[in-house]
Design a protein around this nucleic acid. Sequence first.
DNA 1: GCTAGTGTACTCGGATAGTGTCTGTCCGAGTGGGGTTGG
DNA 2: CCAACCCCACTCGGACAGACACTATCCGAGTACACTAGC
Lengths: 161, 161
Amino acid sequence: MRMSEGVEWGLHCCVTLGWLDEHAPVSIRRLALWFDLPQEYLKKRLQALARAGILTSSPGIRGGWSLTRPAERITVMEVVAALEDGLDLFRCTEVRQRGAGGANATDAEFAETCGISAVMRRAEMAWRRELAAHTIADLMERSPQGAERTRRDYLRMAGSA
Amino acid sequence: MRMSEGVEWGLHCCVTLGWLDEHAPVSIRRLALWFDLPQEYLKKRLQALARAGILTSSPGIRGGWSLTRPAERITVMEVVAALEDGLDLFRCTEVRQRGAGGANATDAEFAETCGISAVMRRAEMAWRRELAAHTIADLMERSPQGAERTRRDYLRMAGSA
DNA sequence: GCTAGTGTACTCGGATAGTGTCTGTCCGAGTGGGGTTGG
DNA sequence: CCAACCCCACTCGGACAGACACTATCCGAGTACACTAGC
């Protein structure tokens, strides 16, 4: 069970787009160059973020990607949810009802949720709560050096490439 | 990102083995029949739990599987960790250091951990903490009907099959 | 009666194959701005 | 000088292929108990 790598890419891109807000929109080519990521696949991930209302894309020769909202109002949870389709870490398949073990149970017993499922759900909620407690703006503030360097080097790259 | 189904199976098996403690060991054939699961693959999952010191297997005609410890001292976290190899939901690949974006950074900047990685780690810790707070015994107590029914029907099944 | 041998029901570990998701690439189609051409 | 046109860099969405983990099955080998055969 590993989270898809695209989540990391998406978060870095959101932070970078936040830093480069005044130079928005940023093209996928430059973003891919910036992080040395496969351009076509990264595009797919950003499209997923667009469908979730986190990013906007503008077509045309000066087009590219930008945040739809101020970074203070985009939680890490939203980004993760947009990039991980189902988002259910644990999916209860009601094993308890299958086979000889579940054959002679009353309906009442299965009416209440499986204890295992309940514990898993609690844990997932704790995980989500933590992710929802942090925003893209938090991540931007966390690395002021990165912000400065990104703005500086991005302009240099934009000039040459 | 979905947790492997074997985790659910493993937890149900641990709870069942806890309930059937006095009839231990329980053979893999009966466990697979009990939940209508593929016997050979379930065996592999239980072997993983044995490697983690959660279950013991005994060979021979009266052999089978049993818990190594009282259910009060087996946490859900342990079972999940044993069945999910890596267990790192999020794995930081240091995207920030790659490409043009990381080219001109000082070493000092990358010395401290990536903010994204830190947030993810916090969330994972919250998840693990919740899983570690519950034991197999908790799950056993949560469904007294299941306990009674399991003991009753298991004996019936053991008699016929 | 005791011992050795045999059979059975289990476990262990390796080998192999199907399936689904994640990763990655390619292509045709659409769009907006800028440069060019013609009046 | 102005307007119409064309080109370019960008986006969108679908199609497709490879890598990898998860799921599933099969097989040979080892082990403990029960039962049987022979002394």
